[in-house]
């Protein structure tokens, strides 16, 4: 089932509006920057070379399929900027990994940006990000 852009935007607005109504605004940071700083040790992080595959709209925030990939990475950390806690997973690729990518299913509490930072084989860091819209169900959700 594909939604048109118009429908997607309308849904996004609706979901944000609906979210804003019953709950106080949840604008505080969840500490994701600190988690990334621990991972990189404060080193510079280049943009690009790290891909996050995720749906544009997650039908259910409970089970969102995502893929992280970064060619040449020894490890990739995935953090959420909008969950109560930022840590999602850290992948380490070993001797027999083919490429540096992995897929999994994650929980997203609300529409937010996901950030992935890769530690390359040479010790440098790179990052990528993707916004995933998480909708609020009507009846069943």
């Amino acid at each position: 089932m594909q939604l048109t852009r118009r429908q997607t935007m309308a849904l996004g607005t609706a979901a944000v509006a609906a979210a804003a109504l019953p709950l106080p605004a949840f604008a505080e940071e969840n500490g994701w920057e600190k988690v990334l700083a621990e991972f990189t040790g404060g080193a510079d992080v280049a943009e690009g070379g790290v891909d996050i595959g995720a749906p544009e709209i997650a039908e259910n925030g409970n089970t969102v399929p995502v893929e992280v990939a970064a060619e040449g990475a020894a490890a990739i950390i995935l953090v959420s900027t909008g969950n109560p806690r930022p840590e999602v997973a850290t992948f380490k690729f070993g001797k027999f990994a083919a490429g540096s990518s992995a897929s999994t299913r994650i929980r997203l509490a609300k529409t937010q940006e996901l950030i992935a930072v890769a530690k390359m084989a040479d010790g440098s860091f790179a990052k990528g990000s993707r916004t995933v819209k998480v909708t609020i169900g009507g009846c069943g959700g």
Binding site: E87, T90, K92, G94, F96, A98, A102, R105
Partner: peptide
């Protein structure tokens, strides 16, 4: 996951991983 004792992949999971954790990855077969 390891092949004959050598690592293929390891993952540190946090509570944000969905129930019934699923992973897909690729391996070079020696």
């Amino acid at each position: 996951a390891s092949f004959e004792g050598e690592e293929i992949i390891s993952v540190d999971l946090d509570p944000a991983i969905s129930a019934n954790p699923y992973f897909q990855f690729e391996m070079k077969v020696p």
